[in-house]
């Protein structure tokens, strides 16, 4: 349990309220954070699918896979699930290695990529200890069929801009891509797609700088852990184990 006194049906409303409060603050005073309760995650991968749909992710690009691990031997078997979005590290190794300043840490905590500046060298992918960055090679799901379906060419809205997929050369094709915490939705007052689709309310989102927010409370939980903390990357995404 998350050690907080909140009814399940109140969780979403509270996160929405937290979000509205955060949006009233200047950008530099926010610090977006995601908390994933592994005890509540059932491994349905609805978040993965929602993310693919929201960001129009092509084949070979995934922002939030759910890693399954089996523990023990029959009859004592358990499974744990680890949804793995971008960790939005406070000391991101991907930013340090980018040769073109095409990725940076925003003041609100998001690690952003400028698709129009990225040269596609994939150095950041090599440097990320979470494999959170993927390379868009320009595939379509309807490749090999008589026609690439129009819905695959529709733009996504990452970082609040339009990114259509009308040809195979223009960005974000040829770029590194990664989870943005759906910042384009968040800045419009909506929760990230993975949060709204989670069937067990296992993913929380909000402003870590706001002591009254739900995520700020959860971050202080004794169950809170960061992934591969020993890397020194100071991940923002936090797990409740």
């Amino acid at each position: 349990m998350a050690l907080i006194d909140i009814e399940p049906h109140e969780i979403r409303q509270r996160m929405i309220n937290d979000l509205q409060r955060a949006l009233k603050k200047p950008v530099y005073k926010r610090h977006w954070a995601m908390v994933i309760d592994q005890a509540k995650c059932v491994g349905c991968t609805a978040c993965t699918t929602a993310c693919v749909a929201e960001n129009h992710l092509p084949p070979g690009v995934v922002y939030r896979p759910v890693v399954e691990t089996e523990h023990g031997t029959y009859p004592n078997v358990h499974k744990t699930f680890l949804p793995r979005p971008c960790m939005q590290c406070d000391d991101p190794p991907c930013v340090k290695v980018c040769p073109a300043h095409a990725t940076w840490k925003r003041t609100d905590g998001i690690v952003e990529i400028d698709y129009n500046r990225c040269i596609g060298c994939r150095y950041c992918i090599s440097a990320c200890p979470y494999s959170a960055r993927t390379f868009d090679k320009g595939y379509f799901y309807t490749d090999g069929t008589p026609e690439i379906m129009p819905y695959e060419k529709e733009p996504n809205f990452e970082y609040g801009k339009e990114w259509p997929r009308t040809d195979r050369e223009s960005s974000p094709i040829g770029n590194t891509r990664k989870c943005t915490y759906c910042i384009h939705k968040v800045e419009k007052g909506m929760l990230p797609a993975c949060v709204t689709t989670c069937i067990g309310d296992a993913t929380y989102f909000g402003d870590a700088n706001d002591p009254k927010s739900l995520v700020a409370e959860l971050l202080s939980s004794p169950r809170a852990r960061k992934l591969r903390e020993e890397e020194g990357t100071k991940p923002t995404t936090t797990y409740l184990v």
Binding site: K96, V97, C98, P99, A100, H101, A102, R117, C118, I119, G120, C121, R122, Y123, F135, D136, S171, I173, G174, N175, T176
Partner: peptide, 20 residues
């Protein structure tokens, strides 16, 4: 490179923290 035409960005938007 994913975007060969942008190779100049390595010099125009240089990041001296990057070995590349």
């Amino acid at each position: 490179l994913g975007h060969m035409a942008r190779v100049g960005n390595v010099l125009f938007h240089m990041n001296l923290n990057s070995m590349m």
